[in-house]
Design a protein around this nucleic acid. Structure first.
Lengths: 260, 260
DNA sequence: GGCTCAATGG
DNA sequence: CCATTGAGCC
């Protein structure tokens, strides 16, 4: 089973890149973030034409998530389901082949100290409660997406200069790690403890050319599923495509995951 | 000698169309209107790369004219040169091979009765004085561009429904004709008295597909030059191009024009 | 409908 | 730098 995540920065602008990636890699699940489109404008027909199932929720301009699956999800749940502030354009649960897959776009946080930054820190607490209420760390489950945190210095270029950035500030890193500590394993870092590999590069100042990036997109799995992980990697091709997102695709492959 | 006019509706968006037209038709002069770009952002290098000369003046977002010539113009003059309101983003004179070519983008006029409409009517009076001061109706000269008037009912689809449009209202038609009466001949209509042929079609409601357009782009010449005109036509290919302007190209060819 | 700009977001 | 919206213009 192959699962991937990709912050598209507008699904309408990135549709060719997504269709190409689906055709070349044929994943079982592809999770998208920042679709930036309201549901009525979502390019559903073009994606259904690939023969896959598509689950999505978004609003005008901001956020938006979509999960594209080979098989029909056995269960779908939008948002945090806590109350009025449902955040259903940032979190989407699908259960595919018995495995819960939590596709999330964590708030970026604007800048350290801002109200939006406090919202980001709180968001990690909320998502941890979300895991508590519907998942079991002893059974297969996946949390993936643009989590907007570079967990360690190795995960960002010039870390010493980034300590006040909302994706590397110590409070965000700790909030992220506390959510992870619920029972998730970072598949990329588990497999490659020393590897410098980013998933996001700024559009400006030739960041990609000079490899000045961030590893802020992640695929995490509970222990029983992580044990079945046979491959995980970043595919930089989408970042080099004609009309590229500032993020690229991260993917992971599992052996007989449902039997875990 | 081949001369053409094209309202590009943004030279930056239309650069591929313009380069393609230059390569295919190799005109001596191509006059552009609505370049919609300030001079510092004008795509000069890309046009110079064709081996031609480029004269232009524009501001942010609105208006802007450019004249692309095979030979270097012997003289260039920007604007009406009357006083402070110079209108140099609407009128550009170049003298090429001894022939004055007045490239103009006449104000559209917004709607009949508006202040901008009065400005349009006045503009025709001003341009007639401009001809008086610098041209001679007995010597070759060209006035061309987006003149924003369909002179006769044949020049607009459903004319009876357009009598209150600023490009077909009787006051605009009369103001235009009064300027023309200075000493110009409409080359297209002179050659094709009965032909329905538009140069502009609205972007919306499938106007081009249904040929619901306007003949508002014109090439006019003084009598001695008009006598040398051996061909004039509208090329609809640019209107059918990938990323098309709402206008298309009108061109005219002259035999030994300088000897007139 | 397609261009422009100025905000806003990242 | 690359997205978005919403207004102005045509």
């Amino acid at each position: 089973m192959k699962i991937a995540t990709y912050n598209v920065n507008s699904i309408r602008k990135r549709l060719p890149v997504v269709l190409d990636w689906l055709e070349r890699h044929d994943p079982d699940v592809l999770c998208l973030q920042e679709t930036k489109v309201q549901d009525s404008e979502f390019p559903l027909l073009e994606l259904l034409a690939t023969g896959r199932h598509v689950t999505f929720r978004g609003y005008k301009a901001y956020n938006g998530v979509a999960t594209i699956t080979r098989r029909e999800p056995e269960l779908v749940a939008h948002g945090l389901c806590e109350g009025p502030d449902n955040e259903d354009d940032r979190i989407l649960l699908t259960v595919v082949d018995g495995i819960p897959i939590v596709n999330t776009y964590v708030p970026q946080g604007q800048r350290v100290g801002a109200e939006k930054y406090a919202f980001k820190l709180e968001w990690f607490r909320r998502v941890k409660r979300y895991f508590d209420e519907r998942l079991d760390p002893n059974r297969p489950a996946v949390w993936l997406g643009d989590l907007n945190v570079a967990p360690e210095p190795i995960d960002v270029y010039h870390p010493e200069r980034r300590v006040n950035e909302p994706d590397f500030h110590i409070d965000a890193r700790n909030a992220y790690k506390d959510a992870v500590s619920w029972g998730f394993i970072d598949l990329f870092r588990a497999r490659y403890p020393e590897r410098v590999q980013y998933t996001y590069w700024d559009y400006f100042r030739n960041s990609y050319r000079d490899n000045r990036g961030w590893r802020i997109d992640h695929i995490l799995a509970t222990q029983p599923l992580a044990a079945k992980c046979i491959a995980v990697d970043v595919d930089t091709a989408p970042r080099e495509a004609e009309s590229a997102s500032d993020h690229t695709v991260l993917w992971a492959e599992f052996e007989h995951p449902a039997k875990a």
